[in-house]
């Protein structure tokens, strides 16, 4: 069978192919709206990876938070700012070469540094680890303080976003106050 080359499971191969293809589309497309849509597809395939890895609750949370909330926020901002393809800022060709070389070097270093780590981890997969009951038990006992701190972080981020997004009507120097 064509899909079972290298001895890998076909589900993993197909999902990885979709993930990498969509990620490449995100970084190479000139239209930001298409980039957002491709990034949503990437997040969907990463959620499918989570299901494959028995992390069912995280898969759903990834869909709701990332693909649902954060990417809609990005899409709203893109549409509000009225950016189109004509004024999309581009870089010179040399930047592409340099970025490709540095990213490729990082990839080589990461693969060389990590390719033996599978022999060092303790393999002990469990069926029920990604379910909400198990995760909630760990979250509200061992990780209660980080959980509360992340709530405070959210509150601070919300206050900061509202403060930054508000129009400054008292500032005389701001020349964008005249339009509504």
């Amino acid at each position: 069978m064509l899909l079972s080359f290298l001895g890998l499971p076909p589900a993993f191969l197909i999902l990885s192919f979709i993930t990498i293809l969509c990620a490449l589309y995100v970084v190479t497309n000139n239209n930001p709206v298409y980039s957002v849509l491709a990034l949503i597809l990437t997040f969907f395939s990463i959620s499918a990876h989570y299901v494959l890895l028995n992390a069912q609750f995280l898969a759903v949370v990834n869909l709701i938070v990332y693909a649902g909330a954060i990417m809609v926020l990005f899409l709203f901002v893109l549409m509000l700012l009225n950016l189109n393809k004509e004024n999309e800022p581009m870089v010179k060709m040399g930047w592409y070469v340099g970025a490709a070389v540095s990213a490729g070097l990082l990839l080589v270093i990461l693969a060389a540094a990590l390719h033996r780590s599978s022999e060092q981890i303790m393999r002990n997969p469990a069926d029920n680890i990604g379910l909400v009951k198990n995760l909630g038990k760990v979250l509200f006992t061992d990780y209660l303080v980080p959980f509360e701190l992340s709530g405070i972080l959210f509150l601070a981020a919300m206050v900061g976003a509202v403060l930054l997004g508000k129009r400054q009507t008292t500032n005389e120097n701001s020349h964008s106050d005249s339009e509504s």
Partner: peptide, 8 residues
């Protein structure tokens, strides 16, 4: 996390 069976 899944391979090691650790929820952290």
């Amino acid at each position: 996390s899944s391979y090691m069976g650790d929820a952290a």
